[in-house]
Simulated assay, not measured.
Amino acid sequence: MTTRRTFSKLLAAIPVVGLMSTAAMAQDLREITFVQPSPSAINSFPVFVAIGEGYFEEEGLNVTVEAINGSGAVLQALAAGQAQFGRPGPGPVLAARSRGEDAVFIYNVAARSNFGIVVREESDIQGPEGLRGKVIGTGTADGAEVGFARNVMTSVGMTAGEDYEFLTVGDGGPATVGFTTGAMDAYSSSTADAAILNQRGMAVRDITPPEFARFFGNGIATMGDTIANDPELVEKFIRAFARGHAFALDDANREAVLSHLKDGNPQEGEDPEFQSALFDAVRSKTIPVDMTNGLGYLPPEVWEEWQESLVAGGDLPAPLDDLTAAYTNDFSAMAHEAMK
């Protein structure tokens, strides 16, 4: 049975979207917090769909979603025990592990890269080589978009602070200002960021080399202690999440999906045409090229490439002692089997 949720927006120093079900509160459900690196419901659409369709409730969970600023903040919340699950990028997870934080990737949401370096449509810059001596804007100082951009620039032999500069400008309106004032020459953006810039009249184009599409983006993470001490919780969360993901990929469910996303972030639903187009753009990045292993699978070979690029770019001081400890496909495999 589909369960409608009543969503409330929590106000704090940073944007927070809280999701609580009055029906769930009357039941004996376990309270779980999920943190995401931006307020967008579309970027975390499987969570909002799983809430709206009642999949978490069927697993005995009542999930509250809170939006904080960037992957670094997501990992800090997980490490501090303020949340059980979050959606950081792979670069920040590896960096956190190099500092001794036992964060573990458990589901690949953005199976195809959901980041790109964009420039203004009329810019003469045609590729990353054209950014020598230039400024690349980012939404956050330590988010996944920074590691991605550094990775791209390392591939053409350039080092941040020497050959180009990063500038934290924020997303949305501040990114538009960054371009119009000339404070930045390019912007490392998510698929959603680029769509929003274009929708607001700041036409941009992607100059990222196509080979970087294999570098998956943000996914679901938790702490190693949670996996060791409460594996049943992780299994339940990922099973419901994967069901929400699969439901949203079926166009027959489109109307229900967009309704759930509007409940999660009413502002994104104010322009239905834009909401629909943005959802299509984000959703397309979550479909694996090879569905053999189902949704959520994390390719070990791309983890190796991520680590190599982060070491080369200076984001990691050295390769991790055990890269395989940074991720697991166990829970996505369980969910895949359960949905067959």
Rank of each mutant, 00 (worst) to 15 (best):
R205P: 13
P266N: 11
I227D: 02
A203Y: 13
F56A: 03
T292W: 09
G81S: 04
G157S: 08
G172C: 06
S44L: 13
F241I: 02
G18I: 04
G224T: 12
R87G: 05
M184A: 12
M223F: 07
P272M: 10
P272C: 11
F166I: 08
D193S: 12
S113K: 04
P174D: 10
V311S: 05
R97M: 14
A221Y: 04
T292K: 14
L323E: 04
V109H: 15
E59N: 12
F237L: 01
Y297E: 08
A77C: 11
E31K: 15
A312D: 00
D171I: 12
E162P: 08
L233H: 03
P46E: 07
T159V: 14
R200M: 15
V152R: 01
D290R: 11
G137Q: 10
M25E: 15
A41F: 02
A318C: 04
A221E: 07
A141K: 06
A242N: 09
S123Y: 12
S190K: 04
E31L: 12
F241S: 01
S188D: 05
N265L: 15
I125K: 10
T154W: 06
A80Y: 07
V63N: 00
V302C: 12
D142H: 09
M291R: 15
Q84Y: 00
P300A: 13
G139P: 08
R120W: 06
K285M: 15
R239H: 10
M1Q: 10
N108H: 09
L316H: 01
A248R: 00
K134D: 06
N108M: 09
G52N: 02
T328K: 04
D330N: 08
D250T: 11
V135C: 13
R5Y: 10
P92H: 14
A149P: 00
E53V: 09
P92F: 12
W303H: 05
N229P: 05
D280C: 11
L61D: 02
A96Y: 12
T181Y: 05
D171Y: 14
L233D: 03
F216P: 03
G264K: 00
A248E: 06
I207K: 10
A246T: 11
T226H: 01
F7P: 00
A73K: 14
L233K: 03
P266G: 11
L61S: 07
T138R: 06
V311L: 06
T140S: 13
A312F: 00
L316Q: 01
G296I: 03
G60F: 13
P266W: 05
Q199W: 14
V146S: 03
A103Y: 01
V104W: 00
E53F: 09
G54Q: 11
